[in-house]
Amino acid sequence: MDLLGLGPADWQAIELTLKLCLYTTLILLLLATPLAWWLAHGRSRLRGVVQALVALPLVLPPTVLGFYLLVTLGPHGWVGGTLERFGLPHLAFTFEGILLASVIYSMPFAVQPLCEAFSSLGRRPLEVASSLGASGFDRFVSVVLPLSKGGFVIAATLTFAHTLGEFGVILMLGGSIPGETKVLSVLIYDHAEAMNHAAAHRLSLLLLLFAFVTLFLVYGISRRFQVVRP
């Protein structure tokens, strides 16, 4: 035991959780940026459908999403079965599987802040840049990104924090495999189920403090950059 009272299994879960949070955040920033831009400025009739799909994890029980991902990514599912036919392992009960689940489940926490930030820009800055001969890529890099940095910070912070606390979808798809799928939230559940309340309390307190600091920073960033709060 160390000074915090955490054992090797606890630190292993913390390392795995931080890895999952980091990968999920990076992937979602890459995917959510063009999607949020399209939702903010696109005129397609499919926008409403896409917006509903993106926001679905906000209201869908995590166990429901986890169940359908398990069915899809498992050995008898459409994706998992196809992978096995090509000689590749299925994604159920793997880190890659819970990473995919985490990306889907945390999608609205990345897309919505970026969409709000892009919508608040208006068209005037882009029109000025266009009149000066800037290409579409140049306008996005030199105008949109600097003016939307508050939205990116909030999107990254919320995505990281939300991934840290994911439980239902992870447990359904990944189970509780040490070093592979046993993240902090699952380990807390295991401690509580084993009546090891002291260990569950220590880890829960860490997550509680992190959640408070995260929300404090998010609201501070919102005020500073004057972006819409999540």
Rank of each mutant, 00 (worst) to 15 (best):
A161P: 11
D2W: 04
V186Q: 01
F216W: 04
G220S: 07
P146D: 09
L83W: 01
H41Y: 09
G87S: 09
R45T: 08
V54Y: 05
L29G: 10
L205D: 11
H201V: 05
L35G: 09
T214D: 04
G220Q: 02
V54S: 12
I14W: 00
G74Q: 05
P125K: 00
T33G: 09
L70I: 03
W78N: 02
L46F: 10
F118Q: 13
S222K: 03
L39E: 07
A13T: 08
L184A: 04
L53T: 12
V141R: 13
G151Q: 10
L164I: 09
S131G: 15
A199I: 07
V141L: 07
G150C: 09
L208K: 03
F93N: 14
H191M: 04
D190K: 12
F86K: 12
P230G: 11
R223A: 10
L69T: 07
S102N: 12
C21K: 12
G150M: 09
R85N: 14
P8W: 00
S135W: 01
G165I: 11
G87R: 05
Y23A: 15
A200D: 00
L46H: 08
G97R: 01
G220V: 02
I177V: 14
S176N: 15
H197I: 10
G150P: 08
V103E: 07
S131K: 06
A36K: 07
T157M: 06
L6C: 08
F140K: 04
E15P: 00
V186N: 02
D138Q: 12
F160R: 14
V186Y: 01
N196C: 00
S119E: 15
I170G: 15
F67I: 09
L35V: 11
L187A: 11
T63V: 14
L126P: 14
A155C: 08
P75M: 01
T82D: 05
S131Q: 11
F140I: 07
P62R: 03
V79A: 06
I98P: 15
H162R: 15
F216N: 06
P34Q: 00
R43Y: 02
A110C: 15
L53W: 07
